[in-house]
Amino acid sequence: MEGLATLYGPVLDHDFLSQLAEDVGTATVIEAMAIFEDDVPIRIAALYSCFAEGEVQRLRREAHALAGAARNLGLVRFGETAYAIQRASEGGGVDADAVRDLALSAEQGLSALAGWKAEHRSG
């Protein structure tokens, strides 16, 4: 956990998300989170499959989509982990540790979003 924080930054950029909620409204942010929550498990499963089958191009595409989606919601660590996989796939080599890091940072990210939603729905 400590290693990921050093490598990829905080799980959630709270200031970014607060600003976003101010700009487009909390309801829109929660709507965007719902899209993210539906999308992430599917894309991570696809990424695992690409990794196992050595499909580097598709793996790059999935990592790119995850990185973009995560950054849109201030999920810094997940976004950076996915981006590292995207870059590694462009170079032709992704290792199992990176894919494991991605799963862990996704879990942390989804948990952080759940916390944010609970706080803002009740508030």
């Binding site: 487009v24 409204g25 829109t28 965007a32 899209i35 999308d39 989509a65 973009g68 989606a69 849109n72």
Partner: peptide, 13 residues
């Protein structure tokens, strides 16, 4: 944009 979340956020904004 191929990212649905970014499209949504821009649209609402």
């Amino acid at each position: 944009d191929d990212e649905p979340i970014q499209r949504l956020i821009i649209a609402r904004g």
